[in-house]
C-alpha cells in the first residue's frame, strides 16, 4: 500500500529528480537554504525575450519532500512565463506536491519555490 506521505511518485522523484542539472546561459539564479536542516537548493532559469521559461534546472541536496517538490515545480514552470510563476503561492506549491505536509516539513516543501522566486525577483524583469 502507498505510504501517506512518501507516496510512490514522491519516492521516485527523490530517487530520480526531474531537471536536476545546470542550465547553460541562465539569466536568473538563486540559492535558498533551509536553516533548520542546512539543505540547499539553487534554481537556474533561462527565458526567451518574451519572458517564457525555455530551460530550468535545480541543484543541491535535500530530503525526499524538498527534492520531489522542486522537481514538480521546475517541471510545471517549463514553458510558462516568468511573471506567471513568480506568483505561485505556498498553498499552490503544497497542492502541486499532492500530499499533506505537517508544520515541521513546510520549509522542506517550499525550499525550491523560495529559490525560484528569489531567482526571478533578484533579476529585473
Amino acid at each position: 500500500m502507498d505510504d501517506i506521505l512518501y507516496k510512490e511518485y514522491i519516492l521516485e522523484l527523490h530517487r530520480n529528480p526531474l531537471h536536476k542539472k545546470v542550465v547553460p546561459n541562465a539569466q536568473m539564479e538563486a540559492k535558498e537554504v533551509n536553516t533548520s536542516c542546512g539543505d540547499e537548493i539553487s534554481v537556474q532559469i533561462y527565458s526567451n525575450t518574451q519572458g517564457v521559461i525555455e530551460d530550468i534546472g535545480h541543484q543541491g541536496q535535500g530530503c525526499a519532500i524538498s527534492q520531489a517538490a522542486v522537481s514538480l515545480l521546475t517541471d510545471f514552470c517549463l514553458g510558462k512565463s516568468v511573471r506567471e510563476v513568480v506568483n505561485i503561492t505556498d498553498e499552490e506549491m503544497v497542492t502541486m506536491l499532492g500530499i499533506h505536509i505537517s508544520y515541521a516539513r513546510k520549509n522542506c516543501a517550499l525550499l525550491g519555490l523560495k529559490a525560484l522566486q528569489h531567482a526571478i525577483t533578484n533579476t529585473t524583469i
Binding site: 536542516c37 539543505d39 535535500g62 530530503c63 525526499a64 519532500i65 516539513r105
Partner: peptide, 19 residues
C-alpha cells in the same frame, strides 16, 4: 535524508533529532 529518517521513526513514537 536525515529529515526523512526522523519523520518515519516518529510514526513509531521514536523521537530523534535530524539536521
Amino acid at each position: 535524508h536525515p529529515h526523512d529518517i526522523a519523520e518515519v521513526v516518529n510514526r513509531d513514537m521514536v523521537a530523534i533529532r535530524a539536521g
